[in-house]
Amino acid sequence: MLRSSKSTGVRRTSLRVALAALVLAAGTMVAADNADARVGRGGSFGSRGTRTWSTPAPTPTAPTAQPMQRSATPNQPTQPGMNTAAPRQQPGGGFFNRPGFMGGLMGGLLGAGLFGLLMGSGFFSGLGSLSGILGLLLQVGLIFIVVRLVMGWLRSRNQPSYAGGPRPDTMNRDAYEGGAPAAGSTGAASAAPGRFGFNTGPRGKPLKLQGSDFDAFEHTLTEVQTAYGKDDRPALQRRLTPEMFGYISEELDELARDGLVNRLEDIKLLQGDLSEAWNEDGEDYATVAMRYQLKDAVVDRATGRLVQGDLDRPTQAAEFWTFTRRPGGEWAVSAIQQT
């Protein structure tokens, strides 16, 4: 009788460990499905001249930008009253390290389950019968479904709202070429006075942009993402500053070491707004908020096997891109910041 009891206890412990691994695997699968890829991998890095460590002005496309996480520009103390933000350490990778509701939810669920595993209660209690096992599997499935639903809700919540009519398909230019601000615009045009409707910022001289400049920004977005997906470094070098080319090359080197390639296809700008445009020390700068869609997937370089993402379903991203040029020269990307 004692031997039978011990055998039953061993089987229960083994089953608990297996089911704990199942819960962890489900969380890992969610994390892999939602990891950041594309250019920059969802980070904020680069330089914006003397405004590198200040927050870009808000726009209808994106209300705010994350502080720089990596830059060659020193973070010098600024004068009181400037619109600045301290740099923030890049958060660690992985779904369970993410701040906010989802990190807390998954942390709580796993914490409860693993505590129950150790103490013989919680998720893993009552495993001595078939009904207990089926009930636990049902709980695991429900947890996974709830997580996916909440993540979908958060993604839709993060999409910007659009006042004053349907969404535009390209860069919003009405507020930048001497005309009145676009209907419903509450971003850069109202952030600071100026007939061109953009925030000239705390430093530098105001810069007026032309329609050809916005065409260049849209074209550069597509060219940079496409070149990244093909590991075309000469094309990237033409469109990035030396600092940005160094960061992006590190990403491509890491992918190559792992035998992977990040394919990016069907890049399309959905909406764009100018945040700031200025000239300092003989260089022009323009920070633009852009919301775009693309097909984004990481595949095995040798076999083409899908590792992450989906090349059949487009995803959306909203970012602040800063461009720089010498007067008369071509624009190059000098910074990318997440919203």
Score class of each variant (00 low, 15 high):
residue 134 L to D: 10
residue 103 G to A: 02
residue 126 G to E: 01
residue 84 T to K: 14
residue 108 G to H: 03
residue 70 R to Y: 14
residue 114 L to T: 10
residue 49 G to I: 13
residue 87 P to E: 01
residue 76 Q to R: 13
residue 107 G to E: 02
residue 111 G to W: 00
residue 126 G to R: 02
residue 40 G to E: 01
residue 67 P to H: 07
residue 31 A to K: 01
residue 110 L to H: 07
residue 129 S to E: 06
residue 88 R to W: 10
residue 88 R to F: 11
residue 106 M to S: 10
residue 109 L to M: 13
residue 132 G to S: 04
residue 80 P to M: 06
residue 112 A to Q: 13
residue 45 F to W: 08
residue 69 Q to A: 12
residue 48 R to M: 10
residue 64 T to F: 13
residue 111 G to T: 08
residue 53 W to E: 00
residue 73 T to F: 02
residue 67 P to V: 04
residue 128 G to D: 08
residue 58 P to V: 05
residue 122 G to K: 09
residue 70 R to L: 15
residue 103 G to V: 03
residue 45 F to G: 03
residue 135 G to F: 07
residue 114 L to A: 10
residue 28 T to R: 12
residue 116 G to F: 07
residue 51 R to E: 05
residue 74 P to D: 01
residue 29 M to N: 10
residue 113 G to S: 11
residue 64 T to H: 12
residue 41 R to G: 06
residue 129 S to T: 15
residue 89 Q to H: 15
residue 60 P to G: 02
residue 88 R to Y: 09
residue 57 A to D: 03
residue 94 G to V: 03
residue 124 F to I: 07
residue 49 G to W: 15
residue 118 L to A: 11
residue 106 M to V: 15
residue 35 A to Y: 08
residue 44 S to V: 10
residue 70 R to M: 12
residue 38 R to A: 15
residue 46 G to C: 09
residue 91 P to L: 08
